[in-house]
């Protein structure tokens, strides 16, 4: 990973440890529990991705960690503080990129970033931040005239200008074109190299696969699975799909021992196997099968509308 210096190293990376700790978190809206006994730990310096369907409780959980919402039960510590009682000094160590971006239409990119920098005790250089999110050409453009993706990058700029130790990114790349998304991923990697702990909420599983050190899948307000993207789903992730063709048509077999199967096929065909494909399950496959399994287990697949 290169260009680490662009954003300046963290002076107070914090002792290797836990940045966010959640135990038995419960949040109810009316009678229904949006978060229902959630346990979670985010290690200092890692990129942690929270995945889950709409209404699973992702945004509610994130907003409790950010100090926006109260909780009904459970213990929550964010950077050593209970977010329900976090003051300005605590907030100055966080960076928050919300799901939706406000207008502030008549101010320029430069004015917005420079102004937000003033809120923080030791902010990053506004120009560097604008460059880092790729808005240098739009520096003097009023936000009204920015495209959706550019506005989103401005949100990210405002989220990182305070040199946060912990950065919340709530669906940051919605509306990005592929190029902008890759540029954004590079930015996240650089922030991680600087020692920033990142909680990434996303709908894009490839994004989590690319960026996250660990992934948590949440459904019905509970943590369903938690692991590195490679290991998520345990045995499920080790099953491969082997596809090939012969005189009888197309075949497909799911196996835990693809190499053995391919060797057998090679022997059977006396060399090349026509149309051979070995496909490992993507994070998306694992994610979908985990959710399916969870829905079956609970007997009722409640799809509650997403709350913001």
């Amino acid at each position: 990973m290169t260009a680490v210096t662009a954003l300046g190293a963290h002076s107070a990376a914090g002792a290797a440890g836990i940045s966010v700790s959640v135990r038995g978190l419960v949040k109810r809206y009316g009678g229904t529990a949006a978060v229902d006994g959630l346990d979670l730990e985010i290690r200092t310096g890692e990129v942690f991705s929270l995945l889950g369907p709409n209404g699973a409780g992702k945004t509610t959980t994130t907003e409790i960690l950010e100090g926006y919402r109260s909780r009904d039960a459970g213990e929550v510590t964010v950077l050593g503080q209970d977010p329900a009682h976090g003051g300005p000094l605590w907030r100055s160590r966080l960076g928050i990129v919300l799901q939706s971006s406000p207008e502030n239409a008549e101010l320029t990119v430069q004015e917005m970033v420079s102004h937000f920098a003033r809120y923080y005790p030791s902010p990053r250089d506004a120009d560097e931040v604008i460059e880092a999110v790729g808005l240098d050409a739009k520096r003097n453009t009023r936000t009204r005239a920015l495209s959706g993706g550019q506005r989103r990058r401005l949100d990210v700029a405002l989220g990182i200008v305070g040199r946060p130790e912990l950065l919340f990114l709530d669906e940051p790349t919605t509306g990005f074109d592929p190029e902008a998304r890759h540029a954004f991923w590079d930015l996240v990697r650089r922030l991680r190299c600087d020692g920033t702990t990142i909680l990434l909420t996303t709908h894009y599983l490839d994004e989590a696969e690319q960026l996250a050190d660990r992934v948590g899948i949440i459904a019905d307000g509970r943590l369903l699975a938690l692991d590195t993207p490679d290991h998520l789903g345990g045995r499920l992730a080790h099953r491969a799909r082997v596809r090939w063709q012969d005189g009888a048509g197309a075949h497909e077999e799911v196996t835990e021992h693809p190499t053995r199967l391919v060797t057998e096929l090679a022997v059977r065909h006396g060399g090349e196997v026509p149309g051979l494909e070995v496909v490992r399950p993507s994070l998306e496959d694992v994610y979908l099968s985990l959710l399916e399994k969870a829905a079956k287990d609970s007997g009722s697949a409640t799809t509650e509308e997403g709350r913001r």
Binding site: G67, Y68, P88, R91, L98, S100, E103
Partner: peptide
């Protein structure tokens, strides 16, 4: 439009 929410998330 979320202007206030964003401000609340800063140490302002």
């Amino acid at each position: 439009d979320g202007t206030l929410k964003r401000l609340r998330g800063t140490p302002m």
